[in-house]
Amino acid sequence: MKYQYEEKQTNALDGSKVLPFNLLNAKIFYPEQQENKDGTPTVIEMAQTVVAPTAKKEVLDPKKALSYYASVVAGKYSWGKTMEAEHIVSIGKDATNDPVESPFAALTQQLQTFGC
């Protein structure tokens, strides 16, 4: 985490070096532009009424592989369908195949969708 937020730099459009996760957090949690501050209630409403229900519908869709891991729909790989021995050996293990790629992909998607 220290590397991602304090050391890993990338080139900005103006040619300067920036800490991308640091900038993203600042834009999201500490907006400086009045337009962004004014939009906060709208973003919260959209998250609650559009984004969350849509994400829930997608995750729980039995035609999609992600539902295999959801206990609420008794997914075949969900916590409720696995044995206690599997629970014990999975403690402390990474949940992704590549811990470096996951945050990078998430940041890329955010920048492509919403810009900076």
Rank of each mutant, 00 (worst) to 15 (best):
K2N: 12
K2I: 12
Y3I: 10
Q4M: 13
K8E: 14
Q9W: 02
T10R: 11
T10S: 14
N11D: 08
N11K: 15
A12Q: 01
A12K: 02
A12W: 04
K17I: 09
K17E: 15
P20T: 02
P20Q: 01
F21T: 00
F21Y: 09
N25H: 14
A26C: 01
I28R: 13
F29T: 05
F29N: 10
Y30F: 05
P31H: 01
P31T: 01
N36K: 06
N36S: 08
K37F: 04
P41Y: 06
P41M: 05
P41N: 03
T42D: 12
T42Q: 13
T42C: 02
V43C: 09
I44N: 06
M46Q: 12
M46D: 11
A47P: 00
Q48Y: 03
Q48H: 05
T49E: 11
T49D: 06
T49K: 15
V50E: 11
A52Y: 12
A52P: 00
P53T: 08
A55F: 13
P62Q: 02
K63I: 03
A65S: 14
Y68Q: 05
Y69S: 09
Y69E: 05
Y69D: 04
V73T: 13
V73A: 08
K76W: 08
Y77L: 13
W79D: 07
E84N: 11
I88F: 07
V89T: 07
V89I: 08
S90W: 05
I91S: 06
G92D: 07
G92R: 07
G92A: 10
K93I: 01
K93Q: 15
A95S: 10
A95T: 04
N97G: 11
D98F: 06
D98M: 09
P99D: 04
E101A: 15
E101C: 04
S102F: 12
L107N: 01
L107D: 00
T108F: 13
L111E: 11
F114A: 05
C116S: 13
C116R: 09
